[in-house]
Write a protein that binds this DNA or RNA. Structure first.
Lengths: 209, 209
DNA sequence: TGTACATCAGTGAACGCGCGTTCACTGATGTAC
DNA sequence: TGTACATCAGTGAACGCGCGTTCACTGATGTAC
């Protein structure tokens, strides 16, 4: 009979006034589990507590329940995605380069962190009853606006034949989403290189010239 | 205190020799739960038994475990998808019509039965240890071959500029997959009509002329 | 400088629940004689 | 035609498990006097 040994190094309580630090450790533990499991669906309060090296009830001092932890994790993932796809002040002169680069950045985030991407867009998380924003759009639509603006700018400079940047951006978003998720779901399929796929999709769907 | 009343109509055991009928009822119960919950992830042996009006251990006479039930359900869903997208003998003269119709059929199955589609392609189900087919391709790739052939035929008749039907079919499959899954995941987003989206994607990605 | 005490950070034990799985069983039905 | 019995289809009780959640608690640390 093998006995599981808790080789956890003994955790000391935080200093007085520093109790809020545990909140951070809880979130980091949740992220670690999501990345390791490849999904957020197996996350439990007890698994988070084990990962963080604390007792399960300690989580209640910082989050009301598992959904609250998950909501904070989702916020964090959206920040990371935003950071990836953000285009700074000194953007290239060619708007097609900016657009294509943004699509590659989006796809690379989803490919490097498939579980995080899945947490954001894999299921309808928003259906909780206490949803406070009836018409506020998802934070992911900030990234979407980058697509719309990118296509519109290309069209404005004659680099795209798009006559409806918003609609074409929707098509493109869906196509990129499908590319990164279907690759994960069907790992045996002989997919062509991701970069080639993203290039082809953005050029054809955004009708670049 | 409200007490749950089991209003189940009393189920009689099947006749002698008809025991195999329960297998069918178990599968039907599993499908009903998947459709109702919108996912297969919440499926349990006990929930199936409740839905079917039997005791949980009765399932073991027909399936070794929950994964075996799920595998049978997946087979069934693949059959349904195949039936939807199958093109009969009397196909239209115009190959672009056939190709576009196949894409619409695929998207309509996924839209009408989002949970079933999700069960097929939403997660990597194939990672079970006892996988008997090391190189056999997924049944979904039968449908994929229809895409490849469709694009190739269009290209052969000068109706498509595709120079690599296999690769373009991969792009198109991913784009269709993304369209149907992202719509479900972001129900608040103002998506354009599904038919328009499918039309635009197949025409642009398969480079129809 | 010493000491009593409030407060903070976190724990251990316990609960009820639904789960998968096992086991011995029950009751109806067909069959041999 | 009757009856003993094998077999089939399915059940009820029980188990150990991990879960969320509650509760009273502990032990260290800072502060008032």
């Amino acid at each position: 009979m093998l006995v599981m040994q808790a080789t956890q190094k003994e955790r000391r309580p935080n200093r007085r006034g520093q109790g809020a630090q545990l909140r951070e450790e809880i979130l980091a533990a949740a992220v670690a589990i999501i990345d390791r499991d490849g999904t957020h669906e197996t996350l439990t309060l007890r698994s988070i507590a084990r990962e963080a090296g604390i007792a399960a009830p300690s989580i209640y001092a910082h989050f009301t329940d598992l959904d609250a932890v998950l909501a904070a994790v989702v916020d964090r993932f959206f920040d990371q995605l935003r950071e990836r796809t953000f285009v700074g002040e000194d953007r290239p002169a060619d708007p097609t380069v900016t657009l294509v680069a943004g699509c590659h950045a989006y796809a690379s985030f989803a490919t490097e962190y498939p579980a995080r991407y899945r947490t954001l867009f894999g299921t309808v998380l928003l259906a909780k009853a206490d949803e406070p924003d009836p018409d506020e759009l998802s934070p992911g639509q900030e990234a979407f606006q980058l697509l719309v603006d990118g296509i519109a700018e290309c069209a404005g400079e004659g680099r795209s034949d798009s006559t409806d940047p918003f609609t074409d951006a929707g098509y493109l978003w869906a196509a990129l989403h499908g590319t990164v998720t279907l690759r994960v779901a069907t790992p045996k399929f002989p997919w062509p290189p991701l970069d080639d796929t993203v290039d082809a999709l953005v050029r054809r769907i955004a009708r670049l010239t």
